[in-house]
Write a protein that binds this DNA or RNA. Structure first.
Lengths: 193, 193
DNA sequence: CCCTATAGGGTACGTCCAGTACCCTACAAG
DNA sequence: CTTGTAGGGTACTGGACGTACCCTATAGGG
């Protein structure tokens, strides 16, 4: 039995420990000492791999979440949109989401970290899914072709995200999602005829 | 000459010092020791008034910004909306905005602080201004009456805010504002007929 | 099969900062 | 004049990031 772990193996152990800490205490509560202790190693091994806490946080988050992108096809634009929003809301209000929000807050004044985050969080994939949804609706004749526009596609998610930023914390109620779809998204699509 | 300041006077001095620190170093860089030193006092006097750093930060921000709410009347809905967005963008990209964003980031995981911030930042006033704008447009016959809806009114600002959260930092280019108005806000208003 | 460079481990710091504890002193109000 | 309260000085606790050193296992080449 090799008593001393190295390379890959040790790295996985650290990431695993960091992810656990994230889950339990959020990014704010994740301390380097605790991560090291939990991984059964010490801070040296960590700092040899990541330059600072934030980098470790992001890496650990990535390690812990490989979110599958939903791609609903309910037959109606309204159904698809609601489904997408509900999925997003569920993700954001889950423990993962809480962690993600903590990371985003920490990265708010550091552009370098922000870009790291954007890459990791699959925001672009999300946008493409919405765009595809609009195109399918247009093909069905349910929406004008002009509705398949980047700004239109990103609006609902943006609104959801802003809703999270406004209220303090987890879980935007379902009524809000319905409102976003019925009072904003669908009228908007309709208005682009 | 009274050598020892008290009450009101001392409080103003502290807030002034804190505001200066905010300007120079942002919220993240504002330390209690420095504020105390700059105000020519010590941390006791501060902690007797505010329970923690965040509270002082918010109070100081408020002390430094008494933003007047614009209420443009250009004659067209498009003109008004653009003007409002440009105003907001200017505020948010100014030093004040940078500070405000820092505070928001710090308050992200503390609901109590978030509500404090919302009160201080005049978000509600802003919403009412947008609603009034829509009502005037409806009265002119430029928009359907159904467009004067809370969600519609808050959408452009929400989108702007989300834009700030996405990109790292200061100043969203004017094209984006125009896009928000032309590709989202106006079609949305139109679509609510 | 040994040798050595490299990566891990242990541990102790340096530094910064929030928040607290005490104790002394000016001064306002009675 | 007395006294209670708010300011001032200062030191300290505790937590956390990041760094410095030094020892040791071990992988991989000669």
């Amino acid at each position: 039995m090799s008593t001393r772990r190295r390379g890959e193996e040790l790295e996985r152990a650290i990431l695993h420990a960091a992810a656990d800490e994230l889950r339990e205490s959020g990014y704010t509560g994740m301390t380097m000492d605790r991560v090291a202790a939990r991984a059964g190693t010490n801070k040296n091994a960590i700092y040899r791999r990541w330059p600072h806490r934030a980098a470790l946080g992001i890496a650990a988050y990535r390690h812990l979440s490989d979110a599958a992108m939903p791609n609903p096809d309910t037959g109606t634009l309204r159904g698809d949109a609601l489904e997408m929003l509900r999925q997003a809301n569920q993700t954001w209000s889950s423990p993962h989401g809480t962690i993600l929000r903590g990371l985003l807050a920490a990265a708010a004044d550091d552009p370098e970290l922000l870009t790291l985050m954007r890459e990791r969080s699959g925001a672009d994939t999300m946008d493409r899914a919405w765009l595809g949804m609009l195109e399918r609706a247009a093909a069905r004749g349910e929406a004008p072709a002009a509705a398949a526009h980047h700004r239109v596609a990103t609006t609902p998610i943006m609104l959801l995200r802003a809703e999270y930023a406004m209220r303090g914390i987890p879980s935007v109620p379902d009524e809000v999602l319905v409102e976003i779809v019925d009072e904003v998204f669908l009228p908007l699509v309709r208005g682009r005829g």
